[in-house]
Amino acid sequence: MKGLSVSKAVTALMLAGLVLLPLYSSLSGNIFILTLFTRIVILALAAASLNLIMGFGGMMSFGHAAYLGIGGYAVGMLAQEGVGSGFIQFPVALAASAIYALVIGALSLRTRGVYFIMITLAFAQMAYYVASGLARYGGDDGLTIYKRSDFSGLIDLSNRTQFYYLCLACLFGVIFLIWRIVNSRFGLVVQGLRSNEQRMQAIGFPAKRYQLVCFVISGTMCGLAGALLANNTDFVSPAVMYWTRSGDLMVMVILGGMGTLFGPVMGAVVYLLLEEFLSHITEYWALIMGPLLLLIVLFGRGGIMGVLGRAGRG
């Protein structure tokens, strides 16, 4: 068949599955699967945002989980202080993530390569320690959110199906945005910087400024995921910012296929389902997951999307 590659077909199948999932859940009465997939969709959103800077921009951020925490804490802290409206909570979450990304990005982008990986990691760890020190907001133990964000009747976040569709809409919206960004002049410049920064600079593009804007956009998107995640768990704790969570996000992006539009979604679905599946088989699931990651790195070039693409070409 021409024009319909294997990877496109699989992607379409996956997306259709995500849209129809609540139907299956209500027909089969399996509520757990809806809860599981709400989490998957939210983390897919976070992975997609990471993919924008990592896959398209070539900026290897190892501290992306910080935004999950910042978005989450914005919701949690406001709720704690009696501000329950989502119309305030969500913009604050996005703004806080954007400001953090601006500061961290401006500092981290002075470096490149492995320095950049380590610096973003260290700053995220700093955010983790700061959150652990917030005695008023639970400190180490985290903060329980007693009431989900209130969108004054427009959408009810406590309704499982509505919340799931809200998360899915956010995911699709973000992917649409990434698609527009990547194909815009701005996106082409950022991708050009990934391939050859010196050359782009020689042509006359202010490299760092472009990268910083991209970094901030990505951080803001991930902040949205953080706000959703906090609503999903009714809880936020420093643990969402722990560096292994940043590693998880990176794995999702690589596993799915870096620099592809739907790769991170695929990666999140496969990674989290695998985790769920393995943890049912054995309590020591990481014993299998760890070496599996090693094998994926060694043999699975280009992630799932890469493998599917090669299969399509036969």
């Binding site: 292994t244 590693g247 699931w285 990481a286 090693l294 790195v297």
Partner: peptide, 13 residues
């Protein structure tokens, strides 16, 4: 980063 991240998971477990 990814491969050694996998090793950390393995060692901890």
């Amino acid at each position: 980063v990814l491969a050694t991240f996998g090793l950390i998971l393995f060692f901890n477990e």
